[in-house]
Every structure is written in C-alpha cells, then in structure tokens.
Design a protein around this nucleic acid. Structure first.
Lengths: 191, 191
DNA sequence: TTTATTCTGTACTTGATAGTATAGAATGGA
DNA sequence: TCCATTCTATACTATCAAGTACAGAATAAA
C-alpha cells in the first residue's frame, strides 16, 4: 500500500558491479553508479546502505556467481584432472585479451590496500577458502588417479596461487594462447 | 647561491613508498606523506611534481630495487634450478606473515583499476618484461639441465604467474611454510 | 476518491584533498 | 653586510564526493 520501487535491485547490483569492477572501489563515485543505473542516490542508500555496504553486496554476488559455476564444474563425473583443467580453462576468456583487462574483482579488491574493511576481507577469504576446499575435496576423492607422493592439499593451494596470478597478470592483456600454455604446464603437477 | 634543500629526496621517496605501499595510490593523501616525511606540500610539488609523478618515481625506484636483486641472484653460478629457486625463496618474507600483508607494490598497482595512467602501466609492463627476460635467459642458457620437451619460454612465464599469485595472496597473510610448499611444488616443473 | 505510506529527484551540507599564492627564511657570493 | 636566489610554511582556493533533507510523486487500501 505504498509506492513500489521503480527498479530491480538485482539489475542495479549488476550495473554497480560493472562500474566497481572497471574502476575499483575508491575511484568509483556513487554519482557514476547513479549515472550508469539511472537510480538516484537516495534510492541507492535506501536499498543498499552506504557505499561500503553496496560494494559488499556486489562482491558477495560476484563470489556467489563464480562459486556456483565452480561447484558445477568441479563435481562433474570423470577424472579430477579433467574437471580441474576445465575449470581453469573456463577462466581464459576472463584473464586474457580485452575482456581480461579488468582482471578479477576479488583479486583486485584483495590487493587494494584501501579496502581494509573487515567485512570485505572476510568475504574474500571465505570465497578463496571455499574454492580451495572444492579443489582439495576433488583431488582427495580421486587420489587414485595420482602417483604415490601426490599431495592434494598443497596442489589445491598451488592451483589457487596460479589462478590468482593469472587474474593479476590479466591486466596486461596477455594472449589467450599464452594463458592456455601456462595452464597446460601447471596441469603437469597433477600426475 | 641560494637556500639549499632541507631534505634528501631519496629519503622522501623511501617514506612515500611505505605510505603508498600500505594504503594504495588513491587512498594516500599528500597530507599523509607530508606528515610522515616532515616535508610540506609545496616542497614535494617542487621536487617531484604532482601526485602522479611522485607515485611514478616511487614505483620506478621500487622496481629498480627488485630488478637489481633479481639480476644478482639469477646470474649466479651453479644450476638454473638453484638460482631460480633461490630467487623465489627470497620473496617468502615479503609474501607471508605480517610483513606480507601489504603484498607487492607493483602487483597492487597493476590490479588497481583507478591507475590507468599510461605511465604507470608502462613502468609495470617494463618491469615484468625484464624479470621474465632474466628468467628466460637463464633457463635458455642452462637448457642442458632439463629434459628434451622442456620449454624455457613458457616456463619463464609460468614462474611469473606464480610469482604474481603469491604476491596477490600475500594479502591473506599465509604461513611461510605454505608458501614454501607451493614454491617446492612449482619447482617440479623445472625438470 | 481520499489517505497513509513508501519511493524518487533536486538540491543541499559537510568534509576531504589536490594543488597554489604569498610571505618569509636560509644560503653563497659580492 | 647586503643582495639575489631558491627553498619552506602557512594558509588559501577549488573541486569533488559522501551522505541527507525535503518536497513531491506513485501506489494500494479503505
């Protein structure tokens, strides 16, 4: 029995994500989000809270999206090798070429010294922990694939490091072939 | 025949580096650098130019420091394996524990979307290129160490990716043992 | 149609910061 | 001692962004 909201919050989060992703948290003003979304500041504040809270919602949404996809890919039947390889290959469009230039919102935020808000750190830590858990679980489950000395725990972490490195260097717009070659080489560790 | 400068520019660059490194470019105000260095803004502007120029000088100085060290370590006698291993091991104090929390100034700047100033990109690209060149040159020179299928070029790039990944994840203050385990595992690729 | 309620848009306040004007201080030479 | 020159410190301006007050618009129920 009141005036309904004139925008879809999820649409605005999607637009805000693009702006934050492109320019980073600090450099993004709410006026830019207003301009991009057509939603004025008071409505943004009413719907999402202040700038920090809005960013946190955007980041969580971003994490959920990637985690959902990872859960699907990393649990598929077949060998652990193939599942993990496919998972890494799936990042290539996002860490090479023009599109890769923005890198990964999560890695960008992690390396942003101005974002020491505890909540942002927590969100990223949780995200990384869950990804690594998925990798480790799969490697442990299919341990029979690998040689005797194989260590699923360290390997899971190494893959996380490689993933973060690819996303960091994505800002230099590497060629997708180059990225693929790195992934192929790292996959040698799963043996 | 005029009043001499009352500060050593190199000292100020060192202090500015610490502040920029801790908080990032955007979040660092010149007032903070003034407070940390004791040098007032007009003197900073006279000596270094505006904030962008100051940051660029800081970043170049940072790059030169690491490159100097890399040149020494990566050219030392013995096997390429040992040289590269030692080089990676040398980063451990900077990408683990309390001290590692700030990460790497170069990686942090690379992933900072607000820093699309061409000059900063160039500086980082040049730095990464020179590091990768050093790695590649050493791997090529000692190719005899490795098996027939070994590819020095891709391996050099993979090491750069791992390096960037370690520096990105450094912000989560990993245990140094964990970092060392990753390095040990990646060194398996040099065989 | 009226009304309570919630949303929206304009315009404002407040605070922070990049960059600078200007006056005065410190130096080496005449 | 005095002066030309260059540096320094205070204080200022201008700009920009976060957050908000308030008036008016839109809805559903009565």
């Amino acid at each position: 029995m009141a005036r309904p909201r004139s925008f879809d919050p999820d649409d605005v989060l999607e637009i805000a994500r693009q702006v934050f992703w492109q320019k980073g948290f600090q450099a993004t003003s709410l006026d830019e989000i207003t301009a991009a979304s057509g939603v004025a500041k008071p409505s943004l504040y009413a719907a999402f809270g202040d700038k920090n809270a809005l960013f946190l919602k955007v980041l969580d949404r971003y994490h959920d999206g990637i985690l959902g996809w990872a859960e699907r890919v990393l649990v598929q039947p077949g060998s652990a090798r193939d599942a993990i390889r496919q998972w890494l290959i799936g990042f290539i469009p996002y860490c090479s070429g023009e599109k890769g230039q923005r890198g990964c919102l999560s890695v960008n935020s992690l390396t942003d010294g101005s974002l020491d808000q505890a909540a942002v750190r927590k969100s990223i830590e949780r995200y990384n922990r869950r990804l690594e858990d998925l990798l480790r679980a799969r490697l442990r489950a299919d341990r029979a694939e690998f040689s005797r000395g194989f260590d699923p725990d360290i390997t899971a972490h190494t893959i996380m490091v490689v993933h973060a490195g690819l996303m960091a260097l994505a800002h230099q717009t590497p060629d997708s072939k180059r990225v693929k070659a790195v992934i192929d080489q790292v996959m040698q560790l799963l043996a």
